[in-house]
Design a protein around this nucleic acid. Structure first.
Lengths: 108, 108
DNA sequence: TCTATAGTTCGAAACATGTCGAACTATAGT
DNA sequence: ACTATAGTTCGACATGTTTCGAACTATAGA
């Protein structure tokens, strides 16, 4: 049973509804190579810069998108020295996935 | 393994990233009352009008939102007499859910 | 303290979205 | 044919979003 509202969940989907942000999120969500057993507990983190690699967007745009993902509650961010590391809490992936497998549990 | 691109999937999330559309989708996805065993094969359908009930939006707005959900490939629509019935294919729920449980399977 | 690296904030421009009412199409029943 | 019901399309308007460059803050190392 989720304690999120329709409003909150729609904000999360909106955050994923942009190709750049979805690519960033997927990069964080993909914690192991295909065919490998994925251990959810050691979620690996990326620095902001590393996340943006290959996306061809300005640093300011990258920063903006990560802020959106963070505000939606989809990713975590913490400063570590010169860089800021980002990661996804496994519970977030479970909650998002369960919207489709158990949509009853959402209220309002 | 999904055969959708980042572009396509982000369109699907974008479609769900609006409170009204998410409410419509959830109403269709909720095929059984909480605590009941849900049989995915007999997905129940709603007419356009029934779906919009309680949402306080103009018929034209409702129509627009359902078209968006349909264009994103999230819902099916078919005319049945005077009304148009909408439903979700169970495979869509599985595909969406698997983005969060197996994000590796998405390319481009 | 100076410099280089890593991100963020701000303001502006172009573009997309959500919403409505009015006018339209489609079907069923009389 | 006429009427009522069910949705859709169109045009308009207000509001949001995406993106950038320029200027800023934060940290580490020399």
């Amino acid at each position: 049973m989720s304690n999120y509202s329709i409003q909150q969940v729609s904000e999360q989907f909106k955050a994923l509804g942009n190709p750049h942000r979805l690519a960033l999120f997927q990069r964080l969500a993909t914690c192991c190579v295909p065919g490998t057993v994925c251990n959810a507990s050691d979620a690996n983190s990326f620095s902001v810069g590393a996340l943006g690699e290959g996306l061809n967007i300005a640093p300011s745009t990258l920063s903006h998108h990560l802020k959106e993902l963070h505000r939606a509650g989809l990713i975590m961010m913490r400063r570590r020295g010169k860089s800021v590391e980002c990661w996804i809490e496994p519970a977030v992936l479970e909650a998002m996935s369960s919207f489709f497998t158990a949509p009853n549990s959402l209220e309002n």
